[in-house]
């Protein structure tokens, strides 16, 4: 029985999907930071989280997702406030005063009170490309929550509202169980907020 007829196989990587998930997490992080400032409903929702609270969104086996290749070259001030996407994690920090800041994608030196973990890159791809709504994804076990459950529910609720802001109705209708009616969110408020969030997310934030 010669065993090298059955070689050991080290699985490869799906670069394209990694890159897509990295960018989406970066956009969501930045958008949440801006939305917390701009929209009162999001602010009320995120107010429920305690102060000095870090929240992380990542994809399972942490070691399998190193930072992007150009991450080392970026100067420190870019990585601190996450001007550019450079990793497949998202860190939100609520400091003592209570405002939310996106603090980049590098896990070094950060301790997460609550982490929302996608079970695999494929699952992250399904959720972040809106093939499954957030609720169905949770039911199908696409992502798992580490830390106490109520905080994650508020975070998911905030995420839903931001998605409504960011994406046109066709796409965000897939992600959210119930698309807000006219009464709750006037057309003007939605479009205006969308433009503001986009601009600020990609610039100063």
């Amino acid at each position: 029985m010669n065993i090298n007829k059955y070689p050991e196989i080290v699985p490869g990587r799906k670069f394209l999907k990694e890159f897509y998930v990295g960018i989406m997490l970066w956009v969501v992080g930045r958008a949440l930071q801006v939305a917390a400032k701009v929209d009162k409903e999001v602010k009320a929702e995120l107010a429920k989280l305690p102060n000095n609270f870090t929240l992380r969104m990542m994809v399972a086996p942490e070691k399998a997702f190193p930072l992007f290749f150009y991450a080392k070259l970026l100067p420190s001030f870019v990585t601190d406030i996450g001007l550019l996407p450079y990793g497949i994690q998202m860190f939100l920090h609520k400091d003592k005063e209570g405002n939310i800041k996106y603090i980049g994608a590098d896990p070094k030196g950060k301790k997460a009170d609550l982490s929302v973990i996608f079970t695999s890159i494929e699952a992250a791809w399904l959720v972040l490309s809106f093939q499954e709504s957030t609720a169905t994804a949770y039911m199908h076990g696409r992502f798992v929550v580490e830390g106490d459950l109520p905080h994650s529910l508020t975070f998911v609720r905030a995420l839903d509202i931001v998605e409504v802001f960011l994406l046109p109705k066709i796409i965000s209708g897939l992600a959210v169980k119930r698309y807000p009616k006219w009464s709750e969110m006037s057309l003007m408020r939605k479009f205006w907020k969308r433009i503001v969030i986009y601009i600020r997310a990609f610039t100063i934030g």
């Binding site: 059955y6 196989i9 086996p61 070691k63 399998a64 695999s120």
Partner: peptide, 30 residues
């Protein structure tokens, strides 16, 4: 099958594909 393991820390210790119609103890020992 192998592609589905990408981006996971799982290393496949080998794919033993000698099984045909009959499961025998000699295959199990190998």
């Amino acid at each position: 099958f192998i592609k589905t393991f990408s981006n996971s820390m799982v290393v496949l210790g080998g794919i033993y594909d000698e099984v045909r119609e009959y499961a025998g103890i000699s295959l199990a020992q190998d």
